[in-house]
Amino acid sequence: MTLLTVENLHVRYGATEVLRDVALTVEKGEIVTIVGPNGSGKTTLLRAIVGSVRPASGRITRAPDLVPGYVPQRLHVDPTLPITVERFLRLPGGASRATIAAALARAGVPDLGPRQLADLSGGQTQRVLLARALVAKPTLLLLDEPTAGLDQPGSAAFYRLIDEVRRETGCAVLMISHELHVVMAASDRVICLNGHVCCHGTPEHVSTAPEYRALFGTGTGGALALYRHDHDHSHGPGDPHGHGHSHSHDHGHSHGHDHKATEAAE
Protein backbone atom coordinates (compact mmCIF):
# COMPACT_ATOMS: atom_id res chain seq x y z
CA MET A 1 0.00 0.00 0.00
CA THR A 2 1.29 3.44 -0.91
CA LEU A 3 1.78 5.83 2.02
CA LEU A 4 3.17 8.83 0.22
CA THR A 5 3.13 9.91 -3.41
CA VAL A 6 5.04 12.90 -4.77
CA GLU A 7 4.31 13.93 -8.36
CA ASN A 8 5.80 16.61 -10.65
CA LEU A 9 7.24 18.46 -7.66
CA HIS A 10 8.95 21.77 -8.43
CA VAL A 11 10.49 23.94 -5.71
CA ARG A 12 12.06 27.36 -6.28
CA TYR A 13 14.06 29.60 -3.95
CA GLY A 14 13.76 32.97 -5.64
CA ALA A 15 14.94 32.50 -9.21
CA THR A 16 16.74 29.22 -8.51
CA GLU A 17 14.91 26.03 -9.23
CA VAL A 18 16.06 23.66 -6.50
CA LEU A 19 13.88 20.71 -7.43
CA ARG A 20 12.38 20.02 -10.84
CA ASP A 21 9.84 17.40 -11.73
CA VAL A 22 10.54 15.13 -8.76
CA ALA A 23 8.39 12.06 -8.33
CA LEU A 24 8.60 9.34 -5.72
CA THR A 25 6.47 6.94 -3.75
CA VAL A 26 6.94 5.30 -0.37
CA GLU A 27 5.18 2.02 0.29
CA LYS A 28 4.16 0.78 3.71
CA GLY A 29 7.08 -0.65 5.70
CA GLU A 30 9.89 -0.03 3.22
CA ILE A 31 13.14 1.87 3.67
CA VAL A 32 13.76 4.39 0.92
CA THR A 33 16.97 6.39 0.94
CA ILE A 34 17.70 9.61 -0.91
CA VAL A 35 21.32 10.14 -1.92
CA GLY A 36 22.82 13.01 -3.85
CA PRO A 37 25.67 15.53 -3.81
CA ASN A 38 25.60 18.67 -1.65
CA GLY A 39 23.08 21.18 -2.93
CA SER A 40 21.12 18.55 -4.82
CA GLY A 41 17.87 19.45 -3.01
CA LYS A 42 17.65 16.45 -0.65
CA THR A 43 16.77 18.48 2.44
CA THR A 44 14.42 20.68 0.42
CA LEU A 45 12.57 17.58 -0.79
CA LEU A 46 12.14 16.31 2.78
CA ARG A 47 11.01 19.76 3.93
CA ALA A 48 8.44 19.93 1.15
CA ILE A 49 7.09 16.57 2.33
CA VAL A 50 7.01 17.77 5.97
CA GLY A 51 5.29 20.95 4.81
CA SER A 52 7.82 23.61 5.79
CA VAL A 53 8.72 24.42 2.17
CA ARG A 54 5.95 25.41 -0.21
CA PRO A 55 6.30 23.78 -3.64
CA ALA A 56 6.06 25.99 -6.74
CA SER A 57 3.97 23.27 -8.36
CA GLY A 58 3.30 19.55 -8.12
CA ARG A 59 1.39 17.31 -5.80
CA ILE A 60 2.16 15.54 -2.53
CA THR A 61 -0.47 12.96 -1.60
CA ARG A 62 -0.51 11.42 1.87
CA ALA A 63 -2.42 8.25 2.63
CA PRO A 64 -5.15 8.75 5.27
CA ASP A 65 -3.25 6.59 7.76
CA LEU A 66 0.04 8.40 7.26
CA VAL A 67 1.45 9.62 10.57
CA PRO A 68 4.78 11.38 9.96
CA GLY A 69 7.64 11.23 12.44
CA TYR A 70 10.29 13.76 11.53
CA VAL A 71 13.92 13.68 12.69
CA PRO A 72 15.81 16.84 11.71
CA GLN A 73 19.48 16.88 10.83
CA ARG A 74 20.37 18.53 14.11
CA LEU A 75 18.70 20.37 16.94
CA HIS A 76 20.17 23.62 18.16
CA VAL A 77 18.91 24.38 21.65
CA ASP A 78 19.71 27.89 22.80
CA PRO A 79 21.54 27.65 26.15
CA THR A 80 19.13 30.22 27.60
CA LEU A 81 16.25 27.77 27.17
CA PRO A 82 15.95 25.35 30.09
CA ILE A 83 14.02 22.25 29.06
CA THR A 84 14.25 18.62 30.07
CA VAL A 85 14.20 15.79 27.56
CA GLU A 86 10.89 14.61 28.98
CA ARG A 87 9.24 18.02 28.57
CA PHE A 88 10.60 18.17 25.00
CA LEU A 89 8.97 14.84 24.20
CA ARG A 90 5.67 16.10 25.60
CA LEU A 91 5.65 19.00 23.05
CA PRO A 92 3.27 19.94 21.65
CA GLY A 93 0.75 17.12 21.99
CA GLY A 94 1.05 16.30 25.69
CA ALA A 95 1.83 12.57 25.44
CA SER A 96 1.54 10.44 28.58
CA ARG A 97 4.49 9.63 30.83
CA ALA A 98 4.32 5.95 29.85
CA THR A 99 4.40 6.72 26.11
CA ILE A 100 7.41 8.96 26.59
CA ALA A 101 9.26 6.42 28.72
CA ALA A 102 8.57 3.73 26.11
CA ALA A 103 9.81 5.95 23.27
CA LEU A 104 13.01 6.81 25.15
CA ALA A 105 13.60 3.14 25.95
CA ARG A 106 13.00 2.17 22.31
CA ALA A 107 15.55 4.77 21.19
CA GLY A 108 18.05 3.26 23.63
CA VAL A 109 18.20 6.24 26.01
CA PRO A 110 15.82 5.26 28.85
CA ASP A 111 17.63 7.36 31.46
CA LEU A 112 17.80 10.70 29.68
CA GLY A 113 14.26 11.89 30.61
CA PRO A 114 15.23 14.28 33.42
CA ARG A 115 18.36 15.62 31.67
CA GLN A 116 18.57 19.10 30.16
CA LEU A 117 18.24 19.05 26.37
CA ALA A 118 21.06 21.56 25.88
CA ASP A 119 23.53 19.33 27.79
CA LEU A 120 23.25 16.25 25.57
CA SER A 121 25.98 14.96 23.27
CA GLY A 122 25.38 14.72 19.52
CA GLY A 123 24.58 11.01 19.64
CA GLN A 124 22.22 11.41 22.59
CA THR A 125 20.44 14.30 20.85
CA GLN A 126 19.87 12.21 17.71
CA ARG A 127 18.38 9.40 19.81
CA VAL A 128 16.17 11.83 21.70
CA LEU A 129 14.98 13.29 18.38
CA LEU A 130 14.19 9.76 17.21
CA ALA A 131 12.33 9.09 20.46
CA ARG A 132 10.32 12.28 19.95
CA ALA A 133 9.38 11.13 16.45
CA LEU A 134 8.32 7.74 17.88
CA VAL A 135 5.98 9.31 20.47
CA ALA A 136 3.38 9.97 17.76
CA LYS A 137 3.55 6.26 16.69
CA PRO A 138 4.50 7.21 13.12
CA THR A 139 3.76 5.14 10.04
CA LEU A 140 6.46 7.01 8.13
CA LEU A 141 9.77 8.11 9.65
CA LEU A 142 11.39 11.02 7.82
CA LEU A 143 15.09 11.34 8.63
CA ASP A 144 17.36 14.12 7.36
CA GLU A 145 20.92 12.82 7.57
CA PRO A 146 20.33 11.63 11.12
CA THR A 147 23.96 10.63 11.63
CA ALA A 148 25.63 13.73 10.20
CA GLY A 149 27.28 14.62 13.52
CA LEU A 150 28.13 11.09 14.68
CA ASP A 151 31.30 9.06 14.43
CA GLN A 152 31.40 5.80 12.53
CA PRO A 153 30.38 3.37 15.32
CA GLY A 154 27.77 5.85 16.50
CA SER A 155 26.17 6.17 13.10
CA ALA A 156 26.26 2.41 12.49
CA ALA A 157 24.47 1.88 15.81
CA PHE A 158 21.92 4.52 14.87
CA TYR A 159 21.11 2.88 11.54
CA ARG A 160 20.77 -0.48 13.29
CA LEU A 161 18.33 1.15 15.70
CA ILE A 162 16.23 2.50 12.84
CA ASP A 163 16.14 -0.93 11.26
CA GLU A 164 14.96 -2.43 14.59
CA VAL A 165 12.25 0.19 14.94
CA ARG A 166 11.11 -0.50 11.38
CA ARG A 167 10.90 -4.23 12.01
CA GLU A 168 9.06 -3.78 15.31
CA THR A 169 6.52 -1.14 14.33
CA GLY A 170 6.28 -1.78 10.60
CA CYS A 171 6.72 1.90 9.83
CA ALA A 172 8.18 3.01 6.54
CA VAL A 173 11.39 5.07 6.49
CA LEU A 174 12.33 7.84 4.08
CA MET A 175 15.82 9.12 4.82
CA ILE A 176 18.62 11.19 3.44
CA SER A 177 22.07 9.75 3.87
CA HIS A 178 25.63 10.50 2.92
CA GLU A 179 26.93 7.15 4.00
CA LEU A 180 26.69 5.26 0.75
CA HIS A 181 27.82 1.86 1.99
CA VAL A 182 25.19 1.86 4.75
CA VAL A 183 22.55 3.08 2.33
CA MET A 184 23.26 0.34 -0.11
CA ALA A 185 23.09 -2.34 2.54
CA ALA A 186 20.11 -1.08 4.54
CA SER A 187 17.68 0.29 1.95
CA ASP A 188 14.94 -1.41 -0.01
CA ARG A 189 15.10 1.33 -2.60
CA VAL A 190 17.46 4.20 -3.36
CA ILE A 191 16.64 7.49 -5.04
CA CYS A 192 19.56 9.37 -6.50
CA LEU A 193 18.78 13.08 -6.54
CA ASN A 194 20.53 15.97 -8.22
CA GLY A 195 17.86 18.64 -8.62
CA HIS A 196 15.83 15.95 -10.33
CA VAL A 197 15.64 12.19 -9.86
CA CYS A 198 18.71 10.88 -11.73
CA CYS A 199 17.91 7.25 -11.16
CA HIS A 200 16.09 5.10 -8.67
CA GLY A 201 15.52 1.46 -7.85
CA THR A 202 17.07 -1.27 -5.77
CA PRO A 203 20.55 -0.56 -4.35
CA GLU A 204 22.07 -3.03 -6.81
CA HIS A 205 20.37 -1.33 -9.72
CA VAL A 206 21.28 2.21 -8.66
CA SER A 207 24.90 1.48 -7.86
CA THR A 208 25.47 0.22 -11.40
CA ALA A 209 23.42 2.95 -13.11
CA PRO A 210 25.56 5.29 -15.25
CA GLU A 211 23.85 8.40 -13.76
CA TYR A 212 24.82 7.33 -10.27
CA ARG A 213 28.38 6.53 -11.29
CA ALA A 214 28.67 9.93 -12.95
CA LEU A 215 27.84 11.54 -9.59
CA PHE A 216 29.64 9.27 -7.16
CA GLY A 217 32.28 7.50 -9.23
CA THR A 218 32.60 3.77 -9.74
CA GLY A 219 34.24 3.09 -6.41
CA THR A 220 30.95 2.93 -4.57
CA GLY A 221 30.26 -0.36 -6.28
CA GLY A 222 33.39 -1.51 -4.56
CA ALA A 223 32.15 -0.11 -1.27
CA LEU A 224 29.01 -2.16 -1.66
CA ALA A 225 31.05 -5.31 -2.23
CA LEU A 226 33.20 -4.37 0.74
CA TYR A 227 30.23 -3.95 3.01
CA ARG A 228 28.76 -7.25 1.93
CA HIS A 229 32.13 -8.84 2.63
CA ASP A 230 32.16 -7.43 6.16
CA HIS A 231 28.62 -8.51 6.59
CA ASP A 232 29.37 -12.11 5.57
CA HIS A 233 31.99 -12.29 8.26
CA SER A 234 29.44 -10.92 10.70
CA HIS A 235 31.54 -8.14 12.12
CA GLY A 236 29.53 -6.13 14.61
CA PRO A 237 29.58 -2.38 14.17
CA GLY A 238 31.29 -2.11 17.54
CA ASP A 239 34.07 -4.26 16.10
CA PRO A 240 37.03 -2.06 15.21
CA HIS A 241 37.31 -3.71 11.79
CA GLY A 242 33.66 -3.70 10.95
CA HIS A 243 33.07 -0.05 10.23
CA GLY A 244 36.48 1.33 10.78
CA HIS A 245 36.87 2.90 7.37
CA SER A 246 36.59 6.62 7.09
CA HIS A 247 34.43 8.67 4.81
CA SER A 248 35.57 11.92 3.42
CA HIS A 249 31.99 12.85 2.46
CA ASP A 250 33.53 14.17 -0.69
CA HIS A 251 31.54 12.56 -3.39
CA GLY A 252 34.02 13.43 -6.07
CA HIS A 253 36.19 10.67 -4.63
CA SER A 254 35.41 7.03 -4.70
CA HIS A 255 34.75 5.46 -1.36
CA GLY A 256 36.41 2.20 -2.30
CA HIS A 257 39.59 4.07 -2.95
CA ASP A 258 39.27 5.99 0.33
CA HIS A 259 38.94 2.77 2.15
CA LYS A 260 42.12 1.31 0.76
CA ALA A 261 43.97 4.49 1.57
CA THR A 262 42.90 4.41 5.23
CA GLU A 263 43.59 0.75 5.54
CA ALA A 264 47.10 1.25 4.22
CA ALA A 265 47.58 3.99 6.77
CA GLU A 266 46.48 1.83 9.67
Binding site: R47, V50, G51, S52, P68, G69, Y70, P72, L75, H76, V77, L81, I83, F88, L91, P92, G93, G94, R132, L142, D144
Partner: peptide, 19 residues
Protein backbone atom coordinates in the same frame (compact mmCIF):
# COMPACT_ATOMS: atom_id res chain seq x y z
CA UNK B 1 2.47 28.16 24.90
CA UNK B 2 3.23 24.65 23.58
CA UNK B 3 3.09 25.71 19.94
CA UNK B 4 5.35 28.71 20.61
CA UNK B 5 7.81 26.51 22.46
CA UNK B 6 7.89 23.92 19.65
CA UNK B 7 8.38 26.61 17.00
CA UNK B 8 11.15 28.17 19.09
CA UNK B 9 13.02 24.85 19.38
CA UNK B 10 12.89 23.87 15.71
CA UNK B 11 10.78 25.20 12.83
CA UNK B 12 10.75 21.92 10.89
CA UNK B 13 9.62 19.97 13.95
CA UNK B 14 6.85 22.53 14.37
CA UNK B 15 5.74 22.04 10.77
CA UNK B 16 5.79 18.27 11.21
CA UNK B 17 3.46 18.70 14.22
CA UNK B 18 1.07 20.84 12.19
CA UNK B 19 2.21 24.16 13.70
Amino acid sequence: WSALLTATLNEELAHASGI
